[in-house]
Structure formats: C-alpha cells, structure tokens
Design a protein around this nucleic acid. Structure first.
Lengths: 340, 340
DNA sequence: TGGACTGACCGTAACGGTTCAGAACCGCCG
DNA sequence: CGGCGGTTCTGAACCGTTACGGTCAGTCCA
C-alpha cells in the first residue's frame, strides 16, 4: 500500500494499478501525513516563534523582511512554515508543545519568555535570531552594539551632545516612560539592551555621562509610540538637539511629532532610526540598515542545512550606516556660525 | 503518563509528581506532538495555500492583509498557521499531501491549479478565498464584478470612452502582452476574469464595444509590470484618456509610467486601481477598497467555526468605491470646455 | 459483615503509516 | 530433480500517544 504510493519501483505495475484502483473505490484519501510523520520522524515544517501576536509580524517591516527570508529558505527546502500562535497576554505555552515541526526559529523574544523555554525543552534543533546566545543553539543576528555606536559617533562628530533616546520595550511588563539605567541593564530584550549599550559606548568617551541621557521606553512598537515618546523627551528637555530611536518605526513617529511642534528636521532636530525599512528610505532617514531578509534566510539555512558537527554556529551579518537627510549639525552650532 | 501531563485531575498529586520526576530523570522531553495528533486526529494547525512563492505573500499588500486577518483568526482559536511551500515552476504537489493540518485555506490560485486539486482531494475542510465556487467547499470573497462595474461607471460619468485596461495574469502560462477576448473568457483566475467582465458590464451599455477596449496582461504582479503595461497601452493608443488597472500595485506602476512620459495624472490621464492598499491611499488613488483583513479573518472563522450543517457557506464582503484624486474628466472634454 | 459504590491506578488497543525480514514464486543451471 | 539467485509480495513490528475499560482498595450504609 505504502509502496504503491511512494515506491513504484518496489512492485509490479500491475499490482500497483490494482492497489490504487481499489483504494480509490474504497474512498481512500491517500496516506495520512500525520501518521507518516510519526513513523518517519519528519514533520516537513519548521516552527516560527514570535513574541508578538502573529499578526504583528505582518505589520512590522523588519519582522516582515525576516519572515520573507525565512519563507524563501523553507520554500527552497520544500519545508512548510508553521507559525506558532502566541497570545502574549496569557502565558499559554501549549501551542509550542503541540506544534508538529522538525525545528524552531525564534525571533526576537525576551530572554525570559516562557515560550522560548518551551521551545528549548523540545528535542528539536533551534535557531534564535536577534537573541542572546543560549547554551548550545545556533544563532543569527547582527552586531547591534557596534552598529549603533557608529551611528552615535556620527552624531557626535556632527556636534551633538544633548541627545535623547527612544527605545522599544525592554521587558515583558509595560513601562511607557523613562527607563533608568538599572532597567536598561536588566532589559530582557537583547537587541534593545545592546543598542542602548552601543549608544553609551559612543557618548561616554565624548564626555557625555550616559546616566544623564534620557531614555524613554515604549511598549508598543508603532509610529504613534515613537511620536509620544519623542514628545515626552522634548517636554522634559526642549534643548535636545537629537533624538536617537532604536528602530525606524519609532524614528518615523518622532519625526512626525517634531514637525507637529514646528521643529524642522534636521535643522532644528536631528532624528535617527535603526533597521533600514523602505518607509524610512523614502524620506531619507539617517539610520543603520540591516539585511533583514538575509537574516531570515540565514536562519532557515542554519536550521535546514546539515547540522554541522561544530555545534553552536553563529552567523553575524553586516550592517551599513545610512547617512540620510534627517541628521545634521545641531542648531546651536549652526546658530554659532550663522547667528540666531 | 499522558494523564500526568494533561489530566492532573485524573490522578493524585503525589503520583503525578513522581511520574513527572522520573520522566525528567529519564530525559523524557514531553509528549510528542505528532503522535498526539495521530491519536487525537487533530493537528492544531490550518494550512494556507497560495499560488505564488511563499515569500510573495509578504510583498503584496493585499495578500498580506489577508494573511494578517487569517493569522488573527488562528491566533484566536489557538491554531497554528502552516504555510504550504509551493514552487510555481515545478508542479510538486507533495507538499500539500505532507502538511499535517486540520483544514486548508486556499487563496487566489488559478482554478486549474494542481495544488488546489490536491487540497480538495484531502479529507479535511477547506475554505477558498477569491476563487470561483468549487463543489461543496466554503468560500469567502467580494463581488469583484459589481464592484469594478461601479468604478467603471464612475469613469463613464466623468466622460471617459477611450480607456485601456491593465490586468494581472489570467492563466498559469506567461503572457506579457495584449489579451484578446477569448483569452479573457478562458481566464483561470476567477478574480481577474470577474473584474474584466465587470468593466465590460459598464462600458457595453455606454456604447463602447468591449472587444475594442485594449487589455494588457502581465504575469508578474509588480509596479514595474504596471508601468510597462501602461507603456504598452499608451504606445498602441496615445489617445487613451484613462487606464483601469485591476490592482492598486499595477495602477501605481501605471502612474509612474504616465509621469515618466510627462503626462499629468489625472489632468492628462486618469488611472484607477483595485484593492485599497495603503500606498494607494497615500497618493489618493481612485480605487475600490476591499476589506482584505476581514476577508482573511472570515476565512479563518469559516474554517475554524462549527461546521454548519447548511454546508457550503459563502461570505461576500462589501467593497467601497474610493473617489481619490487620480481620476477626473478627460482631457478632451476639458479642452472642449476651457479651450486647449 | 456484606454488598454497592467511589476513586485511583493500570494495561491495552487502536490511530495509520513505513520498514524490513522473510515467504513465495519463477526461471535456470548443474 | 534439487538447489540457487533473483524478484515480487505479505505480514508483523514499531513510531508515541490517548481513550477506554477493568482491577483493586477503601468507604459507606443497611
């Protein structure tokens, strides 16, 4: 029976025809994929775990790029892509245990996320992306810290000293407001923690004490969040010459808010982002471009490729500083040159 | 054992603890999801079949909206979303047979697609979206024909008579060029066929013979395709006053091409789209807005909801004519009124 | 004291494929 | 005619779980 479907060479054409015939007559719908998976120990799919609602991934351009790259890799290997449903409110890990997959890709979840723990407890290969290193699992990412240091140094070169920072959520609990250093250092999102540290790396040597640079955190990753966070920064210190956002989405919101307040970008306020999303490119956002699609593809390849004996592998992709038109010398310097 | 994990009420806490303890000691990784699925006859996931490369879905805003809505519905029901890998070149249906899912959603594939046939041969519930009705499966969609008829009538009211049409692929074979009526009528993509018919419905009564309206087809659904198709139309008849595209993506490309030729939109050329994607809204594209997210959600609900005894169900969602700024009275009429 | 009842626990039979060993068969040669 | 190499076919074991029925001990009431 099985042979009739999958191994035509193992039996005579005549018997095969007869088997298939009676199968059809009996209404047999073909081999059951689940039973086959049980026996062969192959599900033919990789699971993807995202921290946010599944649908969030379809809104965030960076996540989307990652998804596209991963899908590309899966497609190439004939593997399905199983999106694991996660309800960030309820800590329901059952979905992770129920997913019939041959491996997991975990994208940007907090390091204390129970779903991540659940994935690691499953006896299947796992690749994490934009995450800190976990014991022995493969990892793909960029050097967030060094990348944003370069960007910050660029601002320092331009003359900025009074800057504010807008960042994404640092932990699973909602904290829409200022984030002190202790919260920053305890951050559970590796990417955000690294980016903040990278900014500090640049400003410290420039004589700006990091603890005095205001950092505003937002739980939701939307342009509206970026706008309100920028507003909060400017309210607390109208003398800021630059706002560094840890994502393009937040930066776009900050620009909107600046304009709303009658501030010209970059003449009155410099704004920078991180990611290099198309919307940012369109308006000439100064940012760090990271190869999101490549990242997804690398994650897929890492998972689906032959499991190298030199376990845990790590792929770090290159980034590029994009000097757009939203950063310039600060107003004060400018005024010094041209008068107020 | 099973009870220890899933039915704490079925055994004493003491025994449960002991079982779990020894399980851990033996390195038991928890119940195997595949075996569980085999036994319970539930995979906990729905399959999604798209005609294009998986990664295409992440580029096309309309598909993306559908995906988001579907993901939302799955999430709500705690179901995973299994994206079936399809290589449009090779007709490899195996992936459909290998997918361990409780049901399928089929989105906008040609009605003669072997993958669709493979899905229908599987003994699981199926919902098709933007497809013609298949025997006894649920369906969700819009009234493409009536919706675009309204749009076309709007153009007729404005005074347009010499129009050209840009449409997406009509069949699985590549045909980048004019599509005669016979090809239109034999189209395997229900949505495209319906939209062309809808345009004909409007222009026929207005005294414009449909067969004389040039229709240009493009295989790839990109703005570049829209641009080249518009170019082909304008080359063949520079006197066109309007271009009707069957999607916003194509319309955006057509606008780019018009501008490149020094034609102002809408003063020199009216361009309309279909879908109501954000990029179109931003530039004020005249189009038909369809609730793509709702469509995805409806598909998910149809599949996951209680299977109504009144089988095949059908959900038709409403559309809205968006009178943007890319359509106006045609140049010739204008000139008649104001002089050249 | 005995019978009915309750609750905890355990053994076993599917679920539906794949795989593999060995049976059956066939023709051929010594 | 027996043995042998080869192919085709059959049967049974196994994958890991859940559902179900049965055993057993303990409790309650007549």
């Amino acid at each position: 029976m099985s042979n009739a479907y999958n191994r035509p060479d193992q039996l005579s054409p005549e018997l095969r025809r007869r088997v298939l015939d009676t199968a059809r007559r009996l209404g047999y719908p073909g081999p059951d994929p689940v039973a086959r998976s049980l026996r062969t120990r192959k599900a033919g799919a990789v699971g993807l775990l995202l921290t946010e609602n599944l649908s969030y991934a379809f809104r965030d351009p960076a996540a989307l790029g990652f998804l596209e790259g991963l899908a590309l890799a899966c497609e190439g290997a004939g593997q399905g892509l199983h999106l694991v449903p996660v309800n960030p409110e309820r800590e329901d890990v059952a979905a992770v245990h129920r997913a019939g997959v041959d491996g997991f890709v975990v994208y940007s979840v907090p390091d204390d996320d129970p779903h991540l723990a659940a994935v690691l407890s499953r006896p299947v290969p796992t690749v994490v992306a934009d995450q800190p290193i976990v014991d022995g699992v493969d990892r793909v990412g960029i050097d967030d810290r060094a990348a944003i240091t370069r960007l910050a140094q660029h601002l320092i070169t331009l003359g900025h000293r009074r800057v504010g920072v807008v960042c994404m959520r640092l932990a699973r609990d909602r904290n829409d407001g200022f984030a002190a250093v202790d919260r920053q250092e305890a951050a559970h999102f590796h990417v955000q923690r690294a980016r903040l540290a990278g900014i500090a790396d640049a400003f410290g040597p420039a004589g700006v004490e990091w603890a005095r640079i205001p950092v505003v955190e937002r739980f939701d990753h939307t342009t509206a969040s970026g706008a309100s966070a920028a507003g909060q920064l400017l309210d607390s210190d109208p003398g800021l010459t630059a706002i560094i956002a840890t994502s393009d989405i937040l930066a776009l919101g900050a620009i909107t808010e600046a304009r709303r307040r009658g501030l010209r970008v970059p003449q009155d306020l410099t704004v920078t982002g991180f990611d290099g999303i198309p919307e940012g490119e369109r308006i000439g956002l100064t940012t760090v471009r990271q190869p999101v699609l490549e990242k997804g593809r690398a994650a897929g390849r890492l998972l689906l490729g032959t499991p190298d004996p030199t376990r845990p592998r790590e792929v770090t992709l290159d980034t590029e500083l994009v000097q757009g038109t939203t950063a310039s010398t600060p107003r004060t310097t400018e005024e010094r040159w041209f008068g107020p």
